[in-house]
Structures are given as structure tokens and as C-alpha cells.
Design a protein around this nucleic acid. Sequence first.
DNA 1: TGAACATTTGAATGATTATTCAATTGTATT
DNA 2: AATACAATTGAATAATCATTCAAATGTTCA
Lengths: 120, 120
Amino acid sequence: MGNISCEREKEHQAAAQRAKEGMLPDSDLEKICKIFQMLSDPGRLKIVSALMNGEMCVYHLTEVCGGSTSSVSHQLRLLRDNDIVKARRMGKNMEYSIADEHVREIVNMGVAHLHCEVDE
Amino acid sequence: MGNISCEREKEHQAAAQRAKEGMLPDSDLEKICKIFQMLSDPGRLKIVSALMNGEMCVYHLTEVCGGSTSSVSHQLRLLRDNDIVKARRMGKNMEYSIADEHVREIVNMGVAHLHCEVDE
DNA sequence: TGAACATTTGAATGATTATTCAATTGTATT
DNA sequence: AATACAATTGAATAATCATTCAAATGTTCA
């Protein structure tokens, strides 16, 4: 190994060393991935960004986001299982809302990245 | 439509109204999704978080992240095509690095979410 | 030019995933 | 209890995706 010839070899080995030492355990990486995965489908992201405006029931979510009640419900189940949204029953309806502030921040960060285009 | 009976019906309609008015166009939603999608695979997230420590070549990335050179290269291609990382050639090697500050922030946010557990 | 190194590519496989449709559960109303 | 409304579920299909292996490209050095 290490048979690499490159001017900046030292910096790279140092970076590699830091990366190895600081690398999160796989279990953590998988948890983080799950959050991103939940936001990586247009339909789900639409639901989440709709909920950023306040609590809503499935009926309204379907009206706002389009698609069938069933597909919205399936998406909500995934979002719920992965703690992106939370739900509570109010009579016949289920009220969905954003699970916590972190989710808001992550989504807002995605939106921010959209507007501020690439630097290089 | 609108035949919903629920105590908080007014709030929900207001939220739905705001959501409709403020909803990002599909093209924007898809762009944001792409970013999240890139970070939603453990292998890719590992690569990205390794690169948070500094520029590295494919050889070192493979050493740090595991897997085959080929799979790392395939993942890097996706990350590159979607502006998560950037590359430049240095002699025989390709040097990869994080594309911009936004990517760093989004990843850091994911890590932060990990430590600060659910509020409710 | 040829040999060795570093990385990329393409095609193929198997695994995950979103959506649809039909059937079902839970709740309120009469 | 029966009806209607709201949401969920499960199975099936089609689409997307990560990984592998073998072959190819680009680069340096003798």
C-alpha cells in the first residue's frame, strides 16, 4: 500500500488519518442517512414542506400535495416511522405535524442551498 | 369537498392555504431532493464525511471508507454530478473535496440531529 | 513506446422502493 | 346496529438503485 506519488501526499494522509479517527460508527451513519432518505423523495418532501406551515390532516395534505389518499398515507407512515413527522388523532381525522425543530432546520438548509448557487 | 368536521378545521384550512401559496415549484423540490438523496446512502455519506476532513484521492477514500475502488468511484461520480463534491486532477490522482459550504452545513445538521434526540 | 499505476466506465445482477388498487380498520352519527 | 367518513394496510407491479466484474481510459516514468 501507500505507493502513491503526489505532491500533496502528506496533506492527504493527514486528512485520511483524521477521517479515520473521526469517522462516525456505521450505526450512526445509517441513522443520519435515514433522515436524508426520508427527504429524498419529491412526494415526501412536498408533504414535509406543506407541514412546515402548520398541522394538517390527511385530507388537506392530499389536497395540497396531490396524489391519492393512499399514497399520501403510505408516505406519512414512512415519515412517521422515521420521526420526521408526528401524528395525533382528533376525532375522525389524524393531525400530522413536523416532529421537531431539527427537521425544520434540515429542510430549510436544503431550500437555502437551492437559492445560493455553487461557488466554484 | 371540504366536508370535514374537526374542531380545528379553520386552522387547518389556513395552514393548507399557506402551504398551497408557498409551495415550491416541482423543479425546485426535485433539486432539493437530489441533495438529500445523495446523502441518503451510507457509502456516499461516509465518503462525504471523510472529505469533511480535507481533500483526498480515490485511493485514500477507499482506504478510509472501505469497499472497492470501483464502487467508490461510482459513488463519487454521482456525488460529482450532483455538485456535492468536486474533483481536480493532480498527476495520476484525482483529488476530491466538498463542493461548497452548504453541503458541510447540511451534513453537520444531520449529525446534530443524531445527538439531540427527539423532544416529544 | 511500453509498462505500471490511478481511476473510470458499462453492462448485469440483485435489492429497495414508490405507487396502485382493493380490502380493512377506526371513529362519529343517526 | 347500520351507515358514512377518514385513514391505513397488504400485496403486486414497475421503476430506481448500489454493487460487482471486466474492460477501458488517462497519466507518469523508464
